[in-house]
């Protein structure tokens, strides 16, 4: 479904993605894209969405090169990292706008109930709290039935109840054979819901595999510990390599 071939991206002199090849084919899989700050997670996601244009390499979705295309985005649901909307639009108007743009049946009402947003529908978006805006963000992302979901920090600012609802929602979509990519800083969330981990470091894929692989390779009980070990090991390698010559 998603095939990334030899993807390079640099911003000025800063090489963010270096010859990255990666594909997501398995339906009904939740893939967590992890990595330290600046490792290229967001750039990767945005490349798939066509927001970042590759310096080199190709990305194919559903077997088609996405360069210069925009129609394919109709099959992707995207949850941006920061939920900020036009200040003077009302929540209902924003939802109506996205529906207007996509022109497809959506299940926004169900999601509005799920996240308890009825009271906020007629308020201008500027008056909503950060958590509430994130819920609106989730409604916009999940209201369409798409084969691919790309979620950038989906739990940011959410209260525990909403996080539980989100997890249920993710499980539900997984059951429907969706491909779900997400980035997060909450390792327990990865433990709970992810099937596999893609770990980026300096624009490379440092690790890709199932959760159990990760845990056994880096001898951790939980993902958090495994990742910490991974980073520690990497730091050590780097120090020794700089000392050698």
């Amino acid at each position: 479904m998603i095939a990334i071939e030899r993807l390079h991206k640099q911003f000025g002199k800063n090489k963010v993605l270096k010859n990255l090849s990666l594909s997501f084919e398995q339906k009904g899989t939740i893939s967590a894209i992890l990595g330290p700050n600046g490792s290229g997670k967001t750039t990767l996601i945005k490349s798939i969405l066509g927001m970042v244009l590759p310096s080199q390499g190709n990305i194919h979705l559903f077997g088609k090169n996405i360069r210069g295309q925009w129609q394919y985005r109709d099959h992707i649901s995207y949850l941006p990292q920061i939920a900020r909307f036009p200040e003077n639009l009302k929540t209902a108007e924003l939802i109506a706008m996205i529906k207007d743009l996509r022109q497809r049946p959506a299940r926004e009402e169900e999601l509005i109930r799920l996240f308890d947003l009825q009271a906020h529908l007629q308020k201008p978006l500027a008056y909503l709290s950060g958590g509430t805006r994130q819920k609106v963000n989730l409604v916009l992302a999940f209201m369409y039935d798409n084969p691919i979901y790309i979620l950038d920090e989906p739990t940011a600012g959410l209260d525990p109840l909403a996080i539980i609802r989100l997890k249920e929602l993710l499980q539900e979509e997984k059951q429907k054979d969706k491909i779900i990519l997400l980035t997060t800083h909450i390792m327990s969330l990865v433990d709970e819901i992810a099937d596999e981990v893609v770990f980026l470091l300096d624009g490379h894929i440092h690790f890709r595999g199932s959760l159990s692989d990760l845990k056994s390779t880096y001898s951790g009980q939980a993902v958090e510990q495994a990742i910490a070990n991974l980073l520690r090991q990497e730091q050590h390698n780097r120090q020794t390599s700089t000392r050698l010559p």
Partner: peptide, 9 residues
């Protein structure tokens, strides 16, 4: 918000 729009078809 522009980023959200950019992800739309």
């Amino acid at each position: 918000f522009t980023e959200l729009l950019l992800a739309q078809p």
